[in-house]
């Protein structure tokens, strides 16, 4: 367990609202080894996003409280780390790919502005010296990595000038800015059409493999699980009910809940009958 890059150990999270306490996560354990592709799957409300927020340190306390458990990153317990040290990891060592490309970018600032701002404060937290021009160069570089044809123009654009697929790629590029070791993707691309989503998942997988990153893919879609992971954790009502290599899970799901999930989800195929549809801005 200790050799995993990220290791969640018996994590329990409660939410108290209006004087009532809800046990939203119950003894959740999962491991993400370096360079691995792990999926966390479960129906809506099963606690996937709360797990992700706990890992990233984004839970607002209150209303949430961490009732028990530990989260290790690179052997360090994140829950006992001082705030300042923890902040050094957020968006740098571990980074998030946001789900909704339409709402996750600030509408009134250019892509370059938003990305250089992220980079500026990441640099500051990590005591890295870099000037504005170098930061912009880095922005162009990551935009190229997510296969933007004209990174300079994209950087100058406001979000509204870009298509959904391009915005999702910008969100991936943002996550890559500070060369994280771990990417956590919460349902990336579910707001996009199936074709574009497939392209995004392919891109994400290629990037993760090429750069040797670990990927924790959060989804309720088993089609996505099959495409993007080698090991899968199945969550239901705040608990991990089953976890096995992906191929095994699909060959012989053990839990009735997993069977129901598999039956319920349409297959997501990589290719498409309509050809590749990159929407021009």
């Amino acid at each position: 367990m200790s050799q995993a890059l990220l290791s969640v150990d018996n994590l329990s999270v409660d939410f108290s609202t209006y004087g009532q306490t809800h046990h939203v996560l119950k003894n959740v354990s999962l491991d993400v080894p370096a360079r691995s592709q792990i999926a966390l799957v479960g129906e809506s409300g099963s606690g996937k996003t709360v797990t992700m927020k706990a890992i990233m340190g984004l839970l607002r306390q209150p209303p949430a409280t961490i009732a028990g458990g530990r989260i290790f990153y690179d052997g360090r317990d994140l829950l006992t780390l001082p705030d300042k040290e923890r902040l050094k990891l957020r968006g740098t060592a571990m980074s998030m790919v946001f789900q909704d490309p339409m709402s996750s970018l600030n509408p009134v600032f250019t892509i370059a502005d938003q990305m250089t701002t992220i980079l500026k404060y990441a640099d500051r937290r990590l005591d890295r010296q870099r000037n504005g021009r170098d930061r912009l160069a880095r922005v162009h570089e990551v935009l190229t990595q997510v296969r933007m044809r004209d990174p300079e123009r994209v950087a100058r654009s406001y979000p509204i000038m870009l298509s959904g697929g391009m915005r999702q790629r910008v969100l991936i590029a943002m996550a890559l800015l500070s060369e994280p070791k771990l990417l956590i993707a919460d349902e990336p691309g579910t707001a996009l059409d199936v074709t574009t989503q497939a392209q995004i998942l392919k891109l994400l997988k290629d990037l993760v493999e090429a750069r040797g990153l670990a990927l924790l893919m959060i989804t309720h879609n088993l089609g996505v699980v099959r495409e993007t992971s080698s090991y899968v954790y199945v969550m239901n009502k705040g608990q991990v009910v089953e976890h096995r290599p992906t191929a095994e899970l699909f060959a012989a799901p053990r839990e009735d809940y997993t069977k129901a999930l598999i039956a319920a989800v349409p297959r997501l195929t990589g290719g498409t009958r309509f050809g590749t549809a990159e929407v021009a801005p």
Partner: peptide
């Protein structure tokens, strides 16, 4: 409450910048 504010938090943008830049202008 917009996603992009939560996103900037997740990327480690300090609160001061979030409030006076990312929130105030929109």
């Amino acid at each position: 409450s917009q996603d992009y504010i939560e996103a900037s938090r997740a990327f480690g943008v300090p609160e001061r910048v979030r409030v006076f830049k990312y929130m105030l202008r929109p």
